[in-house]
Structures are given as structure tokens and as C-alpha cells.
Deep mutational scan, measured.
Amino acid sequence: KSEEHWTCVVCTLINKPSSKACDACLTSRP
């Protein structure tokens, strides 16, 4: 599942699959 985009639970930004934290608010990926 690491190839899928993911949505930040805090700010709802859709992040790149390679991101380990949100690009906007830096919250860790769930």
C-alpha cells in the first residue's frame, strides 16, 4: 500500500506515497 497517496488526519492534505509526514503540517503518517 506504500504506493498510494495518503490523507493527513489533521489537515486533510493529500500527501505523496513517499512522504513519511504531512507536507503541510508535518504530522506523522498514520
Rank of each mutant, 00 (worst) to 15 (best):
S2Q: 14
S18Q: 11
T27Y: 02
P17Q: 12
T7K: 09
S19T: 09
C22H: 01
C8D: 04
P30E: 08
E4L: 06
E4H: 10
L13D: 15
C11K: 09
C25R: 01
N15W: 00
S28I: 10
D23F: 09
T27A: 12
I14L: 07
C8L: 00
E3V: 07
A21K: 10
T7L: 06
S28Q: 14
K16S: 09
T7M: 06
W6I: 14
P30G: 14
N15S: 02
N15M: 07
V10F: 04
K16E: 04
T7R: 07
S2C: 01
K1C: 00
V9N: 12
H5A: 07
E4F: 05
K1L: 07
R29F: 02
D23K: 13
C22D: 01
C8G: 04
P17D: 15
N15Y: 00
T27D: 09
K20W: 07
K1Y: 06
L26G: 14
S19C: 04
E3C: 05
K16I: 14
K16R: 05
R29P: 14
P17M: 15
E4K: 10
P17R: 07
S19G: 04
W6C: 06
T27M: 13
C22L: 00
I14E: 10
S28A: 13
R29C: 12
E3P: 04
R29N: 15
K1V: 06
N15H: 05
S18L: 11
T27E: 12
S19W: 04
T27C: 10
W6A: 02
S19Q: 10
R29H: 02
T12K: 15
I14C: 06
T7V: 05
T7D: 10
T7W: 02
E3K: 06
A24N: 07
L26A: 14
V10K: 13
K1E: 05
V9Q: 12
A24W: 03
C11M: 03
C8E: 03
W6L: 03
E4S: 09
C11F: 00
L13R: 13
A21E: 04
R29L: 08
E3G: 07
L26H: 12
H5R: 04
W6H: 04
T12F: 05
C25E: 02
K20V: 11
D23N: 07
H5G: 04
N15E: 02
W6K: 09
T12Y: 14
N15R: 02
L13M: 15
L13H: 15
C25W: 01
W6G: 03
C8K: 03
C22S: 01
T7H: 08
T27S: 11
C25A: 01
V10D: 14
H5V: 03
K20Y: 09
C11P: 08
P30N: 03
E4P: 09
C11H: 03
K1F: 14
I14D: 13
R29I: 02
T12L: 12
P30L: 04
S2N: 02
S18A: 11
S2M: 15
A24I: 03
C22M: 03
K16M: 14
A24G: 15
T27P: 02
L26K: 15
K1T: 04
C8M: 02
K20P: 13
S2H: 03
L26R: 13
T12A: 13
S18G: 11
S28L: 11
C11D: 10
C25K: 01
A21N: 07
A24C: 08
S18C: 11
L26W: 05
T7Q: 11
S19R: 07
T7I: 05
K20F: 10
I14V: 15
S28Y: 05
T27K: 07
S18M: 09
V9P: 06
D23R: 09
A21R: 06
C8P: 04
W6T: 02
C8W: 00
T7A: 11
P30R: 03
E4I: 12
K1A: 05
N15L: 01
K16D: 10
N15T: 02
A24K: 14
S28F: 05
S18H: 14
C25D: 01
E3M: 11
C22V: 00
H5E: 05
K1M: 05
R29K: 13
S2L: 12
S19N: 13
